[in-house]
Amino acid sequence: MLRSRTILSIILSLAILPLTAQSTSPGKSLEVAYFGQFLIQPGLSISSSIDVQSLAAPGQASTRSLFLRPQVGYYSQVNSHQSYLAALDFGYSIQKQKKRGWAYRSVSLGIGYQLKSTQEGFSVSLADGGRSSQKRVNTTGWLPTVSYTQGIPIQPQLSGYYRILLCQLFENTERSSVTLFTEIGLRFYLK
């Protein structure tokens, strides 16, 4: 438990530090989203998108940029597992100014690290059906990801977005598995 809290603290620091340190730089945003494995295993994600290079050409209506996106996330399945992950993405984004704000699309590649606490067993009381003596096992794994994001304008400083992340979870050689995350959230522009 101590280990998981330590890892979570480090992950949160990594995600938040870039925001506080570069809050005056352009093309920066904070994203808060519902984050679910296969959409149905619910969780929460906080990420920050930081433009590292503008690729805009004169005369183009849209803005193109390369960005970095640190992210922390949590998702769970009731009575099964709780998982924490941290990821860093590098991607390409096309943004377009609309009347109400920014619309955008982006693709990115990333690498994540996941800590998963799985409930492997428990005792059930024959008196009342209650659960006790839950046996939990922690596992970790690397998580290379490829993702696609579509954002829609809401206000000048706010967009809604959905993101699909296709991942290969490497718990170990035998237990690697493909998985899919979906994010539905809000992007707050910090500039």
């Binding site: 799985t118 492997e120 428990f122 005792s123 059930v124 024959l126 009342d128 659960r131 006790s132």
Partner: peptide, 24 residues
């Protein structure tokens, strides 16, 4: 918890260990 429902005896002081069966 269905096991408790089946016994239907709140005085039954026993627990049964269960595997959360999720093959990997």
């Amino acid at each position: 918890a269905i096991l408790s429902d089946l016994i239907a005896d709140p005085a039954m002081q026993a627990n049964i260990d269960i595997i959360n069966y999720r093959p990997k």
